[in-house]
Design a protein around this nucleic acid. Sequence first.
DNA 1: GTCTATAGGATGATAGAC
DNA 2: GTCTATCATCCTATAGAC
Lengths: 183, 183
Amino acid sequence: MPRRRGDTREQIREVALELFAEQGYEKTSLREIAERLGVTKAALYYHFKTKEDIVTSLFEDFKADIDELRSWAREQPVTPELRREVVRRYAEILRGAGKLIQFMQENGPAVREMKAGGDARERFRAFAEILVDKDASLPDQIRARLSLFSLNLAFVLRQEIDADDEAVHAAALEVALDLLPSD
Amino acid sequence: MPRRRGDTREQIREVALELFAEQGYEKTSLREIAERLGVTKAALYYHFKTKEDIVTSLFEDFKADIDELRSWAREQPVTPELRREVVRRYAEILRGAGKLIQFMQENGPAVREMKAGGDARERFRAFAEILVDKDASLPDQIRARLSLFSLNLAFVLRQEIDADDEAVHAAALEVALDLLPSD
DNA sequence: GTCTATAGGATGATAGAC
DNA sequence: GTCTATCATCCTATAGAC
């Protein structure tokens, strides 16, 4: 059965993300990705210039979503309600990006060294500055970071807590909103 | 200048932890560790049977501290004050283990596959069950996990927030205590 | 677009001399 | 305890045929 035209690139992305999230970036070889797809390594190199290029491609949609949210937020006056809305929208973006978040979360050293990873971390950092005043107390600074983190963490906790994804997600969002400065 | 007797094993541990935390487990080769110490790879293999064995050794003190805290906690009646005290003592244990925590945190896939790593994660999981009732609400479940996590996270945030380590640590502890169920 | 074949190198680990 | 030398295996990446 032949692969449908234009499908291969997308299939590489899917399999790569799956493996990167599951067993890590370094431990996942291009040979393994190719084998799962029933092609050779050389075929991968036709679609992506390097291994890192696959990661870059994986981050693209996520980066675009985050940038859109950030530029929207920049146009609004900073109020407690804006902050809550930013967290809600951020949570919505994360929903579709579970494996990417897990990959980012659990492959710090590898991600840090890649351009796309550094960009994503920088975006994450920039969000914290929307959620809390620069001169807020240290505990509030930490709470704001933890708020974003609680959403990321939901993906890890789902495996540990016995409850369905929808419920965990809703609960994580509730916790995240509680962690914002009350002003 | 000759190395002092019995020092080499300890020096290997120090350099390895430094590199594992900084650039990741997989990206750190035994050659690199040996080079930093001015010895050869073969010398490393005299002190440790495998690369994973170095990690096992790194986790040993931490595991002992955690086990002691857990068995102490088991003998106490579960009250809100016990929970707060457990978090305080956990925070104290983490203080001396910054790089190990960072390594654990940022090398999920590698750590997960190693016996010592799995043990450490299991201990972490077990702590959550002391901090919150099994039948507590889902948000409270998440908050309890996030409480422990906030302490871990302090080590990462120190680099990002402009404040001295002592202050960040104290603030992280305050946030952690706030996240416990109020009962 | 996908293949075979291979370059060029690093890696974890071991054997055996000193 | 530390060394030299080596093994077997894996890796990313490329050249060139089909």
